[in-house]
Design a protein around this nucleic acid. Structure first.
Lengths: 221, 221
DNA sequence: GGCAAATACGAGTGATCGCTCGCACAATCC
DNA sequence: GGATTGTGCGAGCGATCACTCGTATTTGCC
């Protein structure tokens, strides 16, 4: 609750150590989970002594807080550029590309994000921030679907569809990040896009079977 | 390793204690995760002393092994009754009902299953058994889709579709078990069925938009 | 160079956890 | 009843973990 009036002068070396420690923490959290990750292991991974670690973080929880905070911040920047007014009125296939691609890229580049956000073992502060982010993302998804839905959905339906679209995305995302980098992962991304497109098409396209009423056997790609 | 030639005579009271301890372990694992769950907490939850707990389990891992084993066994029984030859040729909507309903029911009734199977913190033995179960389920899904696909899918496509269908189901399942029991959960289940139906329809129905009710009288069983 | 602050160290401390052990009670068999 | 064995207890042991502290080194500033 109290601001600290002495913001602790940091030298460049200190900032570097912090990044180094957070990177090490990300690796260890990712490999073993939050609870099983020991602060000594994090320090060892960062090639520093336990004492040095505690020079920059008051306790283990603070490490997760800071790491989670930075990841959430990056994620917010990512999805801030994703749900733009222009994207909002894009045709569905392009909209799905525009939304999924950055999300997939971020989560593949930062596996610690999912590891930290998912466990029920994480300290309460992280869980709170994650809930906020989740709610924020969800409302963006909801507004996007609302903007696209023809005819308009009832509020209850809108909630259900947004919740399910997000949950399904998360399920597919887990498959994608688990896939080996390369063509296999790309194919998985394409497949998830198919799921989303087929699920949402009837909602945006009125009663039609798909967004593209042309060729009955598209089977492209 | 070595079979034990002395299968340790158990009295009825002992069997009851074991069930009691496993139930307590399920609750504690579910609430705190495997690593954070202490054996003393499990014993306390079961209203017995730590010594009593260790009368029936050699160590903490064995508790998770036994609990996971029992849950996996139940799950196998469930999905053994799900993927039957009769169900294999069911129309898609009925097939989805037949597969999803028991799976959803099981996971809602046994939240410890997901809690135990999901963490990367669980002992290696559980992870192995879970991988086996996962592979088994996946192959059942694959065979079902293969039986339904018109025209037949290439092996690579079949793998991708089965993987994605399963991953998407798991994502939706997480939403469902998190939903409060009652109409909200039922609506979520119905919504997940929509996702699966819309995703798989183009695969089974050839070019058709949805489940073509061409065969009006399947009426078997 | 000289000083103060920041950085780095790593053995050590208290707490917690998995697990043990000695002993008492209860059930079963003869 | 006596013998044997399963059941139950809970204080306590060794290991591990989060975290500290006294001290040595490096950096920024004059």
């Amino acid at each position: 609750m109290s601001e600290d009036p002495r913001p602790r002068r940091r030298q460049a070396r200190g900032e570097r150590r912090i990044s180094q420690l957070l990177q090490a923490a990300a690796d260890v959290f990712c490999a073993n989970g939050y609870t099983a990750a020991s602060t000594n292991a994090i320090a060892r991974e960062a090639k520093v002594s336990p004492g040095t670690l505690y020079q920059y973080f008051p306790n283990k929880e603070a490490i997760a807080i800071e790491l989670g905070g930075r990841l959430i911040h990056q994620m917010r920047e990512t999805h801030g550029q994703v749900f733009t007014p222009e994207n909002l009125s894009l045709p569905l296939p392009e909209l799905i590309d525009a939304v999924l691609d950055p999300m997939v890229e971020f989560n593949c580049a930062n596996p610690a994000f999912l590891a930290l956000m998912h466990g029920s073992e994480v300290p309460g502060r992280i869980a709170e921030e994650h809930d906020e982010l989740h709610a924020s993302l969800l409302s963006q998804v909801r507004e996007t679907i609302r903007a696209q839905a023809v005819p308009p959905l009832s509020p209850e339906e809108l909630d259900r569809v947004a919740d399910m679209a997000f949950a399904v995305f998360k399920g597919g995302l887990a498959l994608i990040v688990a896939a080996p980098e390369g063509p296999v992962r790309d194919a998985a991304v394409a497949e998830l896009k198919k799921v989303m497109l087929r699920y949402l098409s009837p909602i945006v396209g009125g009663a039609g079977p798909g967004t593209d009423p042309a060729a009955p056997a598209p089977a492209a790609l």
